[in-house]
Design a protein around this nucleic acid. Structure first.
Lengths: 349, 349
DNA sequence: TTGAAAGCGCTAACAA
DNA sequence: TTGTTAGCGCTTTCAA
């Protein structure tokens, strides 16, 4: 049945193709192709006629169709897998990558991992079906060996934040263990001996590294790590708040807390405020965040540099796309201790 | 010249096509197509043989190639233009859209507008060249009439946060004027008569709306708006800080400040802290933000709901993609006053 | 400088 | 249930 009220009784105007442009300009289709792709060998007069036709028809080149036959088959797009596009840390990485790729005409498919291994597989597969020119991935699955056929096909691949397992590929990471060790030493230097660790899910590589770095540094300084309360599996603000609350209200509360991730830091901050101990118990958090210097006390953090991680990842994926076949490398973006007050509180008494 | 050190002397293994799968499974190419697209009319035995071949070859369907011939030509992707992917407000919108589209197999190209009209045109054009199935756009150009050919072709189009000019299309927006008016009335109710407005660039529609709503509400309550210092053009934290500082240090400083955007609010917070007036001068900010309740005093805000904006935009673009031809509509997501302390400070003296 | 013909990997249409 | 042929919009190849 035909809809009578349709504003386009004969259907909407069809999207023009190169054929239409060619016909209107009175040239062959290949000439239009040359103009659209800025290829040489077209007289200026012809070029102008073609351009006028494209404007008159509102023609836009179809990149997908072109890539089908083009040697090298570039879709001018990459797949970017982030912890979550809603996470400010991810957002900054994303932005740095966009800034580096946009000038090259490469668009970014962005997806959220949610630290779910099944999603990782499904989203990577979705990227591959779209024949992206490269993959920049945050991962959670135990192994990335499933990507071996893709590395064999020389698909450019860069891992960010976490290193792949069972696969040799470029990775751009923060010095998680070293950053956490810096936090530990900072707290020790301010006299703390009763420290506590609040950490994320142990299936997350960075969480494991931070835990290891923190505890090892304490061990090196003669603290019996077995005495250190270490809570794992804190993945959001509320669980962190409750864990911190339990610690603070225990028999023998810590005089300093290290929180391994910004949501965990927020939870710890809330617990400290609820117990009125914000100025008594020291806190150092991994990850910097907005307004960290506007709360009372300011929060001392081990800051990561998502913009530099993103920029480096973009540089690597572009190099690989451009044919770089050097062995895979691991790039470490150093973290940075930012002193703001909470980490410099001495132990009570 | 052949590279001797190449790990693949005969070149890397080629990516398999449907032909390869068909040959390996001993079936016709169309049968493979049926299996890959879950079309009926394939015996279970054949289906299994095909699936085994795809796994053995590590085959992934090429969506771009398929879409070329498919009726309807769906790329299963949309273009999303955000103020900036690094902006947490944008990130939440993005996430809500991803959550609604991913189950349908639709991927998202995300780009940053940076409130630059030239970028708007260039990025929309890039989306069109990729033949996205729809566009979800934040805009800054004076007019969106350049998209008329696309609406004529029935390209699904949804505007978020800001409404298009010169084009009739769905839009999902916050009640900016009403939210700002709520802020004005809230401050008046607490006794303020000397108020100040700190606003963003006037070429941004939401900034104009918030300014208008704020000043009109004051006018309705008998305040001579000509006496209200209204600073425009504040696009980042530092410029807002300086503007707020100038106001606070002026002859006749305001007793209450309304900041029209979160970065501006941050700047105002800093100025208040620097002058030690955080507990004397009231502040209401447009936009909620993380830790707004953890600073001292807590910051009273007019909260937007980016998750609801994103969810509604996704619902609309999906409906349009599915053939909804109803007249364009404007959807308003209400803002919400969240009382936290800074907005309830009475005028000094 | 220009264009005709073939074909990229897939789906539509139709035949077997 | 299965396969064959044509063709989507473009680029490649090669001839004019």
């Amino acid at each position: 049945m035909t809809t009578m009220s349709n504003r386009y009784p004969s259907g909407p105007p069809a999207r023009p193709t190169m054929r239409h442009v060619a016909a209107l300009a009175g040239v062959g289709i290949k000439t239009v192709s040359r103009v659209m792709n800025d290829e040489p060998g077209v007289s200026e007069a012809t070029r102008q006629r073609v351009l006028q036709a494209t404007e008159q028809l509102n023609y836009e080149l179809d990149l997908n169709a072109g890539n089908l036959r083009r040697t090298g088959r570039r879709t001018q797009s990459i797949g970017l897998l982030l912890p979550s596009v809603a996470n400010p840390f991810s957002g900054e990485i994303h932005r740095a990558i966009e800034d580096a790729l946009a000038p090259r005409g490469i668009a970014v498919f962005a997806s959220s991992l949610d630290d779910d291994a099944d999603r990782e597989r499904a989203l990577v597969s979705a990227f591959l079906r779209r024949r992206v020119d490269g993959l920049v991935l945050t991962i959670i699955a135990r192994s990335q060996a499933y990507l071996m056929p893709e590395t064999a096909r020389q698909l450019p691949l860069v891992f960010i934040d976490r290193e792949p397992v069972g696969l040799d590929a470029d990775a751009v990471v923060t010095d998680n263990a070293e950053g956490a060790a810096t936090a530990a030493r900072h707290l020790l230097r301010h006299g703390h001996r009763k420290l506590a660790y609040l950490g994320d899910r142990p299936d997350i590589q960075t969480a494991r590294e931070r835990r290891r770095g923190f505890l090892e540094a304490l061990g090196h300084e003669g603290i019996a790590t077995s005495t250190i309360p270490a809570v794992d599996g804190l993945h959001d603000e509320e669980s962190a708040r409750q864990a911190a609350l339990a610690l603070l209200q225990s028999e023998d509360p810590p005089t300093a807390i290290f929180s391994s991730q910004n949501l965990v830091t927020f939870g710890a901050m809330r617990a400290l405020r609820e117990t009125g101990r914000g100025h008594e118990v020291a806190l150092v958090g991994f990850d910097d965040f907005k307004l960290a210097d506007m709360v009372e006390p300011g929060i001392t953090v081990i800051a990561q540099h998502p913009d530099r991680i993103g920029a480096k990842a973009a540089e690597r994926i572009l190099a690989r796309i451009d044919g770089d076949r050097e062995p895979a490398e691991r790039y470490v973006v150093p973290s940075e201790l930012i002193v703001r007050g909470s980490g410099e509180i001495p132990p009570a008494n």
